[in-house]
Design a protein around this nucleic acid. Structure first.
Lengths: 210, 210
DNA sequence: GTCTATAATCAGATAGAC
DNA sequence: GTCTATCTGATTATAGAC
């Protein structure tokens, strides 16, 4: 017999809506500058009600991080499939870019987040390490197939630059250019920046594709 | 006849000390999370006294930005001298790196700063544009001397990556690596990242130097 | 210039009715 | 699940004595 959704169902519509709206506000103004009152107002509910769904602001932030973790892990799982098609890597990169944009406050306001909830530190660090390893595996795979020609001593610096550009590209647009919403043009620009970074090391076979 | 320092002298020792200590706290915790009480305590003075020197927190932030502007302009002035020595650029870069680190909260917490004081937006944008133009001039100079070989269509992407790595490198260390203080090792690492970025485009004459 | 109050405001959070 | 009402604590800022 099918049970009705439990009252505190994690997938509750209101709860999910709060998370979505909070994410938007966090990206716009930083979690420190977004009050629970604003979040409640955005969700069209009362502050008291908000505190029914999330007993602390920290719990709300954690729920946003939960969602990011889930999204990032989905992406990672796809990356793990050792596709023979090098353009698959490009698709993954594109999705990574959109993800970094959608959750850019996580990177940008990390200090405030850690102050809000020191327990987050371990989760964030672990997630970050996991993602960076995935990038390295991806790049190493291209290298082994001679699609990427990089001398050993230049590989780690290249990876670090790749990571910096691919993660801070969104902040760069956000802060320096005052971009409020991600358009396909911006996404293309960010991909172009990564392409520019890789270009000197690409095998001729890939030059045409990337 | 030499006048005694005016009571509200901009260079007043206490005032300057407050700015220095506030800068340190802002870098550590972000301006939003640093209270006037903490700043006063760090300076070893009373909160009321702090408000004698800076009538609002915003005025204090503006004073920190004043100092950054002055430091950045000093650097810019040196860059404007068209030195024949290409290693001079490396020295400038090194100083830029130290500057970005010393004032890293300006980049990191810009959204909060703009919320605190919208008037800052124009100053920050102007300064940022000014600095980026300086970088472009510097790079263009190397190009004209055939020390940097970059096709036209790859020049702007290279500049953008240069800017992203050279400015966000400090945030990367700060947020991802949890670095608290900048050591010569970190500085060397950052310079290595920029070198890695430029390496594919350097003329053989420069490869040995950089 | 520096201090001791203290005001004014606003954030996060709770209790309990509906 | 949602609301109203309220509390507590922290933070910016002011008034006025020393």
């Amino acid at each position: 017999m099918r049970r009705k959704k439990a009252a505190t169902n994690k997938g509750g519509a209101t709860r999910q809506r709060i998370v979505t709206l909070a994410l938007g506000l966090f990206n716009e103004n930083g979690p420190d500058r977004v009050t629970t009152a604003q979040i409640a107002a955005a969700a069209g509910i009362n502050e008291g009600n908000l505190y029914y769904h999330f007993r602390t602001k920290e719990a709300l932030v954690a729920a946003v991080l939960d969602r990011f973790e889930a999204d990032a892990m989905d992406l990672l799982a796809e990356g793990a499939e050792d596709s023979a098609d090098p353009t698959a890597s490009l698709g993954l990169l594109q999705r990574w870019f959109a993800l970094v944009w959608d959750y850019r406050f996580l990177l940008r306001d990390m200090i405030g987040l850690l102050a809000l909830s020191p327990e987050l530190r371990l989760r964030v660090r672990a997630l970050s390490a996991h993602l960076r390893e995935a990038v390295e595996v991806l790049a190493q795979r291209l290298r082994e197939r001679d699609l990427l020609i990089v001398p050993d001593e230049q590989f780690q610096p290249l990876l670090a630059n790749l990571w910096i550009v691919a993660t801070y590209w969104a902040l760069y647009l956000d802060l320096h250019e005052g971009i409020a919403a991600l358009t396909p043009d911006h996404l293309a620009w960010g991909l172009g920046q990564v392409r520019s970074l890789l270009r000197p090391y690409l095998a001729p076979a890939l030059q045409a594709l990337v």
